[in-house]
Design a protein around this nucleic acid. Structure first.
Lengths: 337, 337
DNA sequence: TTGTAAGCGTTATCAA
DNA sequence: TTGATAACGCTTACAA
């Protein structure tokens, strides 16, 4: 039923080997011959069989992208950066999720990767995740995004610095009673959360300000969680005048909590996030932006280089810059607060 | 370097044919033998070579998902529904974008699909898109999501009805001067937009209300576009008392435009969207929810059935229900308006 | 520059 | 239920 390389060879009056070389653009083929082969292939509407090619060559021409979530802003934005890069390089992108509590009972990813892809891109999986460890053990060319583990090449931001920048912004505005909405707290598996916490602490320490436990709450990186956390902070006898939220989504929730208390972000309590979420501009949230799309793109590019250099060159880890974007949700502390 | 089926056969003392049968769970294998084979495979840490298996069997075990966008709410949410279903069935998911103006100069998808996947899922590509036509011409088992073309199986909502429901809600609240924020207007390639427009018109006609051209604006399905559109509507001599936005994201933008004019959604001007976007609840937007995640799941399930029935059974098209969710952004018209 | 031919690691047919 | 063995369609030494 399918046209094979033999049909093309016959039509072009050459051997299958020559067809293979011609169609893959290898150097040592006469241009006349190549043209003839290409014409024959086009006329027969021939497409190469990837399975056969993979089996014979040992290369799969595909890259796995492993992520805990698909429908969350950070992850889908990284994914879009990855996708356009891989597509541009003619690589297939195999998408699989992992560590997602919504889908516990699945095949773990490591066995699904073996003999199936040339490399893997891994988005923000906690560094101590067992499934991550299993994947890394496969010793596939790999780049990490938004997380770093050992000496595996990664693309990240400086989370300590990002948090310092955010906190310092609040300090610069004169705030002293600064609250914190974290993710899952000290038990968090994420490096990003630990680092953002450290940045917050460092900035506060430098300003010689106390870190009040009752001004801290957990928002689990969701907007619903952020809303609850902010509500808890508002219930304290002494409310914060500003709050550093470890993610924009939690800050959105916090904004809502403020509104339901008749308070206005910026005017009554300042709010700052981290991410540069699509909705931040709309909601006028001050935030520390990270270049999420670029993180995906750059990680994919690094992986491609590694793949094309026969894995001789191990990619370097990259730390991308972040940027404070000031909007209406932060303002100088009001006199008397 | 790799363990092959021959190694397992040797270790288990059987033929490669038996190993193949045993490992794939075929019926006619003695349970004793199967156990022995499985043990041998486990001990050798054997994994099947997909390329070889594909070449020999003709099945690829993978499904392509073709989408114009990845990092937009609707698309990433559909994708997550698709992914969990395919993953559960042990199918590989090949992700590729198409028709995306951000990435014009790419290989078209049709050639990339041939001999590579067993089926395709296509998310909301305009029905008259040439690349869509090319993909459908491949005559691969296919399900469409959020769009319908000819008799290709699809999973959609009733967009006419959704728009009627939204408009009727505003009418029920006593609004008469109802504005419309559409996508790209009459030239829109999307069925969804045309249908939503029709639903709006039908509801207005039934209420014997005029459809004022100056109360209509285009928002291009983005929040920035929605903001501009609402701003334009507010500049009219006679403002609408309520606006039907064809998507939640445009409604978010419209909300912002209201706020910058010192107006409050619901109190001053009612706003309703379509989607059930994650942020709608937070922003208290009334909307007509569509079951986006389920649309992905159901389309994937239908495709799997088609694949497993040797394509004998052609999947049916499914229209899923939508649901009005009333929040603070809509309210009865104020007396005197 | 081109051709020959031996793999690549399965699956599937047929016979036992 | 099991085994031999011929595909499957390409790539890649190696030879010419």
């Amino acid at each position: 039923m399918g046209i094979t390389i033999r049909d093309v060879a016959q039509a072009a009056g050459v051997s299958t080997a020559t067809v293979s070389r011609a169609l893959r653009g290898l150097a040592n083929v006469d241009e006349q011959t190549r043209a003839r082969v290409e014409r024959a292939a086009a006329e027969l509407d021939y497409v190469i069989s990837p399975s056969a090619s993979r089996l014979a060559s040992g290369r799969t021409g595909s890259v796995a992208v492993i992520t805990p979530y698909i429908a969350r802003w950070f992850f889908s934005t990284v994914l879009s950066g990855v996708e356009s890069t891989l597509q541009g390089a003619g690589m297939d992108l195999l998408l699989m999720t992992v560590s997602n509590p919504d889908a516990q009972h699945r095949l773990p990813p490591a066995p699904r990767l073996r003999r199936r892809v040339d490399g893997a891109l891994i988005i923000a999986i906690p560094p101590d995740d067992q499934q991550l460890a299993d994947v890394l053990k496969l010793d596939l060319p790999t780049s990490l995004i938004g997380v770093s583990v050992g000496d595996v090449p990664s693309v990240t931001i400086d989370d300590v610095y990002a948090a310092r920048m955010a906190t310092q912004h609040l300090l610069n505005l004169g705030h002293q009673r600064i609250g914190l909405i974290a993710g899952s707290g000290s038990r968090s598996p994420f490096t990003a959360e630990k680092d953002r916490h450290r940045g917050f602490v460092e900035a506060m320490n430098e300003a010689r300000l106390p870190i009040a436990p009752h001004l801290q709450a957990l928002g689990f990186f969701t907007s619903a969680g952020g809303e609850q956390a902010m509500t808890a902070l508002l219930a304290q006898r002494e409310r914060p005048t500003a709050v550093f939220c470890m993610s924009d989504e939690m800050a959105f929730g916090a904004m809502r909590a403020l509104r339901s208390h008749g308070l206005q972000p910026g005017r009554d309590i300042s709010l700052i996030g981290v991410d540069g979420h699509d909705m931040s501009e709309l909601l006028e949230l001050t935030t520390v932006e990270q270049p999420v799309h670029d993180m995906g793109r750059i990680a994919a590019e690094a992986l491609l280089v590694q793949l094309h250099s026969d894995n001789q060159i191990k990619a370097q880890s990259v730390v991308l810059p972040t940027r404070l974007v000031v909007r209406a949700s932060t303002a100088p502390i009001a006199p008397g607060q």
